[in-house]
Amino acid sequence: MFEGLDLGNMGKMMEQMQDKAKELQEQAKNVELTAKAGGGLIEVKANGAGEIIDLNIDESLMEDKESLQILLISAMNDVNKMVEDNKKSQAIGMMGGMNPFGS
């Protein structure tokens, strides 16, 4: 069943994959993703690692706490989805195009 399987090479392959994953994590910090809500009244920027790196709030929202909260939540959810999609596409690229995520 496992004839011809070189376990020594498997260890090297796993090590290479781990090194590649670390490299991708570092590269992700250089990726910048932006989500807007309310026609641009709120803008949230995150890096590919999921860290929020910038936030812009239009002055007109400062008096409307409820709208501010709703738009902020929307923009943050959108940017988080972008980060996850970016991570998935990097993982698929690392695996040579095989998609372990099912879609």
Rank of each mutant, 00 (worst) to 15 (best):
E3N: 14
E3V: 03
L5G: 05
L5W: 15
L5F: 15
D6E: 03
L7C: 06
L7W: 00
L7I: 15
G8I: 08
N9V: 15
N9S: 15
G11F: 11
G11Q: 04
M14W: 00
E15P: 02
E15N: 08
Q16E: 06
Q16V: 02
M17R: 02
Q18D: 00
Q18M: 07
K20M: 14
A21K: 07
A21C: 01
K22A: 10
K22V: 05
K22L: 12
E23I: 10
Q25I: 05
E26T: 13
Q27E: 10
Q27A: 10
A28L: 04
A28N: 05
N30G: 09
N30R: 15
N30P: 04
N30L: 14
V31R: 05
V31S: 11
L33N: 01
T34V: 08
A37G: 13
G38I: 15
G40F: 15
G40H: 13
L41R: 11
I42R: 06
V44S: 13
V44E: 14
A46K: 08
A46N: 02
N47P: 02
N47E: 09
N47Q: 04
N47K: 14
G48M: 05
G48A: 03
A49Q: 07
A49G: 09
G50H: 02
I52R: 09
I52F: 12
I52N: 07
I53Y: 00
D54S: 15
D54V: 07
D54A: 12
D54W: 11
L55Y: 02
L55S: 05
L55A: 01
N56Q: 15
I57V: 06
I57G: 02
D58L: 03
D58Y: 04
D58R: 03
E59G: 03
S60K: 13
S60T: 07
S60Y: 02
S60L: 04
L61C: 03
L61E: 04
M62Y: 05
M62P: 06
